[in-house]
């Protein structure tokens, strides 16, 4: 059941993004940035966590999860350390995504070249 929800929710987010791409003049970059920002705002409103509770990977895997994680990290550290937590919290959770991308990408670049 959780797999089906993840499929449907994740698919719906992507389908909506595609619909915007195909029917407006916005570029993929616009849509990606909008998705990330939406995740951040929903986290601020306290909605993203219940949403992720429900949808599981369907909310975690889309980049909106990236935005929500940044906000979450900032809020948590602001609570613990005060104002500078807003800065130090930036990569508390998302540091993983960034570091993983950089490390894996570098490793792959050692062995593979662009094709075609």
């Amino acid at each position: 059941m959780q797999y089906l929800i993840a499929f449907l929710v994740g698919g719906a987010i992507c389908a909506l993004a595609q619909l915007i791409l195909d029917t407006t003049k916005y570029t993929p970059t616009h849509v990606l940035v909008a998705t990330v920002s939406l995740g951040a705002v929903l986290q601020g409103l306290g909605l993203y966590e219940p949403f992720q509770e429900f949808a599981g990977a369907g909310a975690l895997v889309p980049v909106s999860g990236f935005g929500s994680s940044i906000t979450k990290g900032m809020l948590a550290e602001a609570k613990s350390f005060g104002w500078y937590g807003l800065f130090t919290g930036t990569f508390e959770i998302t540091g993983l995504g960034l570091a993983a991308s950089i490390v894996f990408s570098t490793a792959i670049t050692l062995f593979r070249k662009p094709q075609r």
Binding site: Y3, A6, F7, G10, C14, A17, G58, V61
Partner: peptide, 13 residues
Amino acid sequence: AFVVGGLICTVGQ
């Protein structure tokens, strides 16, 4: 987009 995005999220799940 629905199918591909959905399947990627299912793998995540």
